[in-house]
Amino acid sequence: MSTVRPDAPAPDSAPTPTRRVDASMSLLVDMMTNTLDEAYAERAARRTGEAEPVPESASASGRSRTLAGFAVLVALGLLTGTAIAQVRQRQEVGTGLRADLAAQARDRTAQTDALAGQTDLLRAEVTAIREAALSADAAGRALTAQLTALGLASGTTPVRGPGIVVTVQDAPAGTSKQTDPLRPGTAPEGRVQDRDLQDVVNGLWTAGAEAVAVNGQRLTALTAIRSAGDAILVDLRPLTPPYVVAAVGDPEKLELAFIDGPSGRRLQTFSSLYGITFEVRREKELSLAGAAAPDLRAASPAPGGGS
């Protein structure tokens, strides 16, 4: 039997002749060699010492012991089954929660979209009513013209016209030399960053764009392009790639000035270095939605100013 304790003498043998070399490390040795419960050996030794097998071991007490063993095994099974069931339950809860959150996010996005559409309608209505109210006299018409010009400049009026569309996209998986070790399949270097988009937009403004929108979101002087985690936000609304930047202006001049400008050249560098793809396309007719009217921060209605 290989399980005799190395540093304990066998019950009836001569005292161990020499001390084991590794006696001081007996904890690990014990753990590796002495794997069977010593009680088994002790009981067996006592039983053989008793010479005759106890006659009653086959009767009452023997049966109750078998029963105890049976019960213990059932208990072990129960423990195992419960543990397995519990781990499964926890996993279900986790996936359920995630699906729930995703559904909630989708719901809220749809809600926001619906509300944005409603806002557009109401804004158009307000504009129409205002024009109708102001068209009565010359001063009103001048005011309308002024409002329209200001709306164009501030980005709150929907506009149409020729222009160019710059489409920027993350590098396709696997093209970049480096891949993210945490998320295989994606290349962190080939991902479009918020500052890249800012650069494109600024390049378009510099090239002479009169109105710019990113993925349908009209940009104003107060628009922020930022990132949160992996997502790029325009005015706190997340964008999904590809990033489509539409600019209204003279298409030829815009395209030339943009591609030859610093941001166009930077895009080309990124494209060759990191695999970001971009495309500049001329459009005869672009239609950009208006941005939400900015909140009034300092102005308040004058008291008694009815007309």
Binding site: L73, V74, G77, T82
Partner: peptide, 9 residues
Amino acid sequence: ALVLGVTLG
């Protein structure tokens, strides 16, 4: 006994 226990659990 084991199978019974696991099934029960």
